[in-house]
Design a protein around this nucleic acid. Structure first.
Lengths: 246, 246
DNA sequence: CGGACAATTGATCTACCTCAAAATTGGTGG
DNA sequence: CCACCAATTTTGAGGTAGATCAATTGTCCG
């Protein structure tokens, strides 16, 4: 479990971090040296729940996950979608009690890294600590952007915006290209993320299809008109703070 | 500008940090030693704008501020309200381009601390870096909670929730007690924060007054029934990660 | 006292919700 | 390869929370 082959699981993490910062060779090597233990879960499984006090961080190697919170009467708010390379619960390093849950959307493989090892890594490479801090700050920037959508944009604009965002995030780690990507998310989940009912999500998607803006079938999204998608959602990628865009 | 009297401006920061973590005597002293330059602005002034690349952090000493973003056609989304002790742009330490603006709500006095000095402080006291990181993570937790409101709660629940949140934040730094506090925010601003129109905010406030739940007059909020306020907004303070509640 | 801003009211409208049923899709076992 | 099941998507009909627009009133302050 701790061999060189296992370290290949760190590839996605390195790609992710290099999408938001630059790493020195030493930092690179230090990450590859992290001990991990990986596990695969089926779709719809919780990785940890609201109230848990995890002692390790969860790195997604394959599949999709989301963070969410449940309310009365079956209402749910999804905060974020996570893809390979993400560490959705990095915050648990400094916030010991989880205030929300993390679950898989698809079958997913995760690598768990003990907090202790992350702390040691940061002590030895403070600059790497800064990169991880930066990652959590980008996380927050994405929350703000979703707030703009939920507070001040139409359903159409919100959905279009999410499609833009996920494309850039996936592209940054090499999981999307040519305005096409896997989107293994149901319309109910889309609604729970954007504060909409599944029925309305469905109707907006049909409107987008009718305009020839997108194709969304068998969990694959194809964007036919990127400019129109960004325009109609007032999408400005600055908030993602990707390295290549500054 | 750099004398002991000036250092008194750090009192609010220390109170704030002690509300979310514990500080050693050395850390305490190191904070007091930070060089600052303070400035007072009138209400409705921008401290920095979307797109800026600040080289210093802004600590609020007195008054209220908010972070926000403007959209087409005068739409605005407010992300957060800030009170004395807050460093609303701590993120600029690692995200160099601002993806939103920061402005005053009332007349406000701020202390500016060069990034360089914050970085040096963190190098000398890595644990203090962890506390600041924690602060930005709590910031993100609050965003998530607002997302729950905007996505899945009624206008009534959202407003009630905000009233609970601001009370605990103010109380934590000694600026509120006995379920009463200064709330120098207009109904338009409340609406821009919660994704509502000012008209609807007004109607919901009247409903709350009619129920005897609150009094809100001349920028002072009095909560007459705290239990009912928390119940109706499904308020659970865990997400604030205050030291005294764990 | 006047001017600016904030709160309030009234009337009308609509984007999106809820409920419920039908159609489609994708996977599974025979 | 097909029949079947469960999950997902789609459609229809009707309802409502909250938006918009346009005054009017109240408040603060110089």
């Amino acid at each position: 479990m701790y061999s060189a082959s296992e370290n290949r699981s760190m590839t996605m993490l390195i790609r992710k971090l290099e999408s938001i910062a630059t790493l020195s060779d030493e930092e690179h090597a230090a990450i590859l040296g992290l001990p991990t233990r990986s596990r695969t879960l089926g779709p719809g499984q919780d990785i940890f729940r609201d109230g848990d006090r995890p002692s390790q961080c969860c790195l997604i190697l394959e599949g999709w996950a989301c963070r969410y919170k449940l309310l009365d009467e079956g209402r749910r708010q999804i905060f974020s979608f996570h893809i390979p390379g993400d560490i959705p619960d990095l915050q648990s390093l400094h916030l010991h009690t989880m205030d929300h849950s993390l679950g898989t959307l698809t079958e997913a493989t995760m690598a768990f890294i003990p907090h202790e090892n992350v702390r040691t890594l940061i002590q030895r490479f403070p600059r790497l600590g800064g990169v991880l801090w930066r990652d959590t700050l980008i996380d927050a920037a994405i929350f703000r952007e979703w707030m703009v959508g939920m507070g001040r944009k139409s359903a159409y604009g919100r959905i279009a915006h999410l499609f833009c965002e996920m494309y850039l995030k996936l592209e940054a780690v090499g999981l999307a290209a040519e305005h096409r990507y896997p989107l293994p998310i149901t319309q109910v989940e889309l609604g729970d993320a954007l504060g909409l009912s599944n029925v309305h999500v469905n109707r907006v998607l049909q409107e987008m299809r009718a305009k020839g803006l997108i194709t969304l079938r068998s969990s694959t999204l194809i964007v036919h008109d990127w400019n129109e998608l960004t325009r109609s959602s007032e999408f400005d990628p600055t908030y993602l703070h990707l390295a290549k865009t500054g």
